[in-house]
Design a protein around this nucleic acid. Structure first.
Lengths: 227, 227
DNA sequence: TTAAATTTTTAGACTTACCTAAATTTATTT
DNA sequence: AAATAAATTTAGGTAAGTCTAAAAATTTAA
């Protein structure tokens, strides 16, 4: 049995990435026009490429109906995003670029083909889980750390949650967090959710229970630990 | 007055690099066939591209006569080589790749377009002048450090010379160099060349005169300081 | 629910970078 | 200096990825 390694062109990679980025969590297909706008190509060119990607089983495509990535296509998209974000970390942390300079360069670097390179780059950077813009970096298996702001829509009472950042960067907010004993990197569990005002009671490691108002909770970024 | 930035495709870059690498120091044009072999393209394809590069004033091309790079073309070639070698240093020194793994990856990375990136990478790596294979890395202006093994064919008596490496890596050779007071990084001047046996007398900084046999001299790598 | 507007696809063409086969030029031999 | 061999170019064709213009399907609105 012979397995041929399907090659994916740079252009195809860009279409796959665009489809991924334009996909909503609701499973509504991405329209030809939105891809056309996003990629700055004519809609007719998009249609041509969609046929090609469908032939390669990277997308589900029904004429006039918009597209979604297949699992195979999604894996490719996530890998490109992983590479993009790791390179952004490299550019900012090692080469001291500012956040507004890195995108265009990472856009080129994300297409470099070498799994070993990305493995080593990941290690070199200390296996970061967030890029400099605060976007999550999927791991080698394509798994994203779930980074959300509270309130969490699912029941996460049982899982360990890590406090990884804030939306509101005012000094007073940061001081308040410190005063209640919540620092970046702290792990906690939700002990109770008060349905009346959507406030939380959380237990920070080695500390007492802490009360979080919904307003406060919605300004912190958390990561739900990968299983 | 409007200056249009000429864009050079990846393919064109590879042709320019190939022409540079196949050019001898004697000014004999590179043949279509040698490019065809080197690039693994048919000779007819090479001819097509040569016409295109000539239109862009990147090469001097006369039908049936072979090609040479114009100063403009050479500048581009040297910049690609600079990028390639800097990335190789990065891959080996920062990501711990072995020398046989880096070429293919650097072959991709050399085409990333960003002057600022290369400037910062160069700094990050400590502005190296040699890549891991011992090949010289041209500086930002495209100037190569002259790295040669002795005997030097030109008269370099007056210039300061830096001892930067050895061809022969045996312990006994290295021990001998140490014993005569010559270590890597040492600067010296040639004080005399003995025409009879092509041996040298050199003056190492702050030391006495040292005698170098031709045999010994031809096993050390030196850099003639850029003016 | 039919007409109008919008979206998407089809059809046909262009450019880049490649190919094969044939023609031409240059180099080598006798 | 012909004749042959080798190198190079020309001519015509292909695939990828784009385009414009026109046709078809879908959606929106009267």
């Amino acid at each position: 049995m012979l397995f041929l390694q399907m090659t994916i062109s740079l252009t195809e990679e860009n279409y796959i990435k665009a489809i991924f980025n334009l996909s909503n969590s609701n499973n509504i297909g991405v329209s030809t026009n939105s891809l056309s706008n996003h990629l700055k190509n004519k809609a007719s060119s998009v249609t041509d490429m969609l046929k090609k990607l469908a032939d390669k089983k990277l997308i589900h495509y029904k004429k006039y109906k918009g597209v979604l990535l297949t699992p195979k296509g999604e894996k490719i998209a996530i890998n490109i995003i992983r590479k993009h974000r790791l390179w952004e970390v490299f550019l900012m942390e090692k080469l001291n670029f500012s956040w507004d300079q890195v995108h265009d360069i990472a856009e080129q670097l994300e297409h470099i083909k070498s799994d070993e390179l990305i493995k080593r780059l990941d290690n070199f950077l200390g296996k970061p889980t967030l890029d400099p813009h605060g976007d999550p970096i999927p791991n080698e298996k394509g798994k994203f750390n779930e980074i959300k702001s509270m309130p969490l829509n699912e029941c996460k009472i049982l899982k360990e949650i890590i406090f990884i950042g804030v939306k509101n960067h005012t000094i007073s907010f940061l001081k308040y967090l410190t005063s209640i004993g919540l620092g970046i990197g702290d792990r906690f569990r939700i002990e109770a959710i008060n349905n009346f005002d959507n406030s939380y009671q959380i237990k920070v490691k080695k500390n007492n229970l802490v009360f979080l108002s919904n307003d406060l909770a919605s300004n912190i970024l958390v990561k739900i630990k990968n299983e």
